[in-house]
């Protein structure tokens, strides 16, 4: 269990940022799970320092074009399309 308490309002807030609606039962369930997950991260603090590989820097590519996907390929996983666009619900 985490030392950081998680309250249900935090769960509701995070859910709203992800545009997910939760009922009260789910809020309770996720409040517990959030606390567990944070607890797992705290376990990581117990891992001893190990020597790291040196960090890479300045990995870049030249400004040169590469073939991408066709429109058909780009849209093939989309549940709904219209006139070559991905189609989704209203977003305000």
């Amino acid at each position: 269990m985490s030392e950081t308490p998680v309250d249900p309002d935090q769960v509701r807030h995070v859910a709203s940022l992800a545009r997910v609606s939760l009922d009260e039962e789910e809020v309770t369930e996720f409040t517990e799970q959030f606390a567990d997950i944070l607890g797992y991260f705290e376990t990581l603090d117990e891992v001893p320092e190990v020597e790291r590989e040196p960090e890479l820097t300045n990995v870049m590519r030249p400004d040169e074009g590469r073939a991408g996907l066709s429109q058909e390929e780009a849209l093939q996983n989309a549940p709904d399309t219209e006139d070559g666009h991905f189609k989704g619900p209203r977003v305000s």
């Binding site: 989704g88 209203r90 305000s92």
Partner: peptide
């Protein structure tokens, strides 16, 4: 308009 639209089309 943005808040009364029926649906959204996306171009990447």
């Amino acid at each position: 308009s943005i808040d009364t639209a029926e649906y959204t089309l996306v171009d990447y």
